[in-house]
Every structure is written in structure tokens, then in C-alpha cells.
């Protein structure tokens, strides 16, 4: 369950599972589950283009930490009948196809609770996921969740925010495995002009408490941002920028477009081995 960033800076790519953008092939939510082959193809292309970790986003009806881009992607994915079990099946497929890629299930808490925390832990481990990130799970409420993650040897990844005081960062660092996800700024997911000054200060504060890699996300959308993040963190998380690219692409073009985008994130700069 090691999550390794092979290059510097590492790249974590978020995909809303089941979203095929604005021009979806008409698919039927068959009894065996929704067709997530489009997300599979994009994820494989992203890994082959240099993504170290794929965050598979479970669509949720009320994504209150997300901006309009991921809200729309969640609505589309749900309209296509995407269910948690489909996302877990996709994870298993990705693990079989790319044994060394990092794989994180990214979700709001309620779909996991409804599925059953214990059943989810077993299924995520069986699928070969490395870790789990729950957007609305804070360390104080995480007792049972942490026990389940430990039981099945999955990495719980917690979010750290610029507003988190040091004692919270300490608890977040102590309970996280895999990596710590540092939120670059106060706010919801979505693009921004530049990497907030908050981000570097936050990463520095997190490092006082852990030797885990630190990934910076929220608003990271181009090569300049990734380079900037690379100056102080181990990895950058790209979410809304790629989800928006998928939204604008045809289903056939999306994997190629995402691959080119990811290559471009590191392209202008020398690639260093860690």
C-alpha cells in the first residue's frame, strides 16, 4: 500500500468516476452496473502520461466542498447511474491493468456509510486500492473509519487546511498514511490564477509533524502551478482542470486530451528523479 511519487513533483489526478463529459455515448445503466469504460480509458491514459496516483471520485448528490466543475461532473455521473460498487469495480480493473499506479478512492462520507463502512473497506482492499480520502471526515470523528482502514491495510488520507491550527495538523499527520493532502487555500475545488501563498506555509507546518509526502491540491491547473508546488511540496493534485477538459472533449478524444495535458504539466521543466 505504498504510494510512491516516481518523479518530482509527483502528480495526483482526480477523476469523477462515471463522468463522460457533455457528449456522452448513450449508455444504459445495466443490471450489472453503469459503464465506466470511459473513466477507465482516461485513467489509463493519465497513468501512462505520468500520473503517479489516480483519485477515483465517487459522485455524490451534495458535493458541498466542490466548485461548479466537479458539481456538474457529479451530476452527469449520477445521471448515468454510477454507483459506488461500479467505482470499486473500476478500481479493480485499473489495479489489474497498472499494478504500480497509486489508487485512492475519493468520496463524501454518506455513500460509504450507506454501503457499510466495513463492507466498503473489504471491497476497496479487494479492488487493490492503496488509500481512501473522505472529504467530510475529520480526525475527531474517524475512530471507526481508522480501525477499518487499519484492519484491511488501506491508507487513510486526511485533508489539511490553511486554517488548521498546529494541534489539528499534528493529529492529521499522525492519522494519515500514504500522503497528506494539503488544501492550497480556503475555498472549494476549482481553478485559480496562482498558487496561494497559504500553500507553502501550510506544507511547512505539516512537515513539522510528519515525514509522509505532502500533496497540494485545490486550484492547481497548469504547468506553472505544478512547478511552483514542486518548490515546496512532493506532489500536486490536479482535479477541476482535468474534469473540465473531459467536459469539453468528446468521449473518444478525452483520453488523448488528458494525456497531452498531463505531459504538458511537466514538459517545460527538467524531470528529476527523487
Amino acid at each position: 500500500m505504498a504510494i510512491l511519487f516516481q518523479q518530482h513533483p509527483g502528480l495526483v489526478v482526480y477523476l469523477t468516476a462515471g463522468d463522460t463529459g457533455l457528449s456522452p455515448r448513450l449508455t444504459h445503466a445495466a443490471a450489472e452496473g453503469a459503464d465506466l469504460s470511459a473513466t477507465r480509458d482516461i485513467a489509463l491514459a493519465a497513468i501512462d502520461a505520468g500520473a503517479d496516483v489516480i483519485e477515483l471520485g465517487v459522485p455524490f448528490s451534495d458535493p458541498l466542498a466542490d466548485g461548479p466543475v466537479i458539481q456538474r461532473a457529479s451530476e452527469r455521473a449520477l445521471a448515468r447511474g454510477t454507483r459506488l460498487k461500479d467505482v470499486l469495480a473500476l478500481a479493480k480493473e485499473l489495479r489489474a491493468a497498472r499494478p504500480h499506479a497509486g489508487l485512492v478512492i475519493f468520496s463524501y462520507l454518506n455513500p460509504i456509510l450507506r454501503f457499510g463502512l466495513s463492507r466498503f473497506a473489504d471491497a476497496a482492499a479487494d479492488a487493490g486500492a492503496d488509500g481512501v480520502l473522505l472529504t467530510d471526515m475529520i480526525v475527531e470523528e474517524a475512530g471507526e473509519y481508522l480501525a477499518e482502514m487499519k484492519r484491511v491495510n488501506l491508507a487513510p488520507i486526511f485533508l489539511a487546511a490553511p486554517t488548521s491550527p498546529d494541534e489539528r495538523l499534528k493529529a492529521i499527520a499522525e492519522h494519515s498514511q500514504g500522503f497528506v493532502y494539503a488544501i492550497s487555500r480556503t475555498g472549494i475545488t476549482g481553478k485559480q490564477q496562482s498558487v496561494a501563498a497559504d500553500a507553502a506555509a501550510l506544507v511547512e507546518r505539516i512537515r513539522r509533524w510528519t515525514r509522509l509526502p505532502v500533496a497540494v491540491g485545490f486550484g492547481i491547473s497548469n504547468a506553472d502551478h505544478v512547478t511552483k508546488v514542486g518548490e515546496f511540496a512532493d506532489a500536486a493534485v490536479i482535479g477541476s482542470a482535468i474534469v473540465e477538459l473531459i467536459e469539453r472533449s468528446t468521449e473518444e478524444d478525452a483520453p488523448g486530451a488528458v494525456a497531452r495535458f498531463i505531459k504538458g504539466l511537466r514538459q517545460p521543466y527538467p524531470v528529476q528523479a527523487l
Binding site: I138, A161, P165, R168
Partner: peptide, 12 residues
């Protein structure tokens, strides 16, 4: 009850 929120809100 409890608190199930994004970490950003916890300090507030």
C-alpha cells in the same frame, strides 16, 4: 450529530 465537514471549517 457530530461534525462531518471539510477540514477548512474546523477551526471556525
Amino acid at each position: 450529530g457530530g461534525r462531518y465537514v471539510p477540514e477548512t471549517l474546523m477551526a471556525a
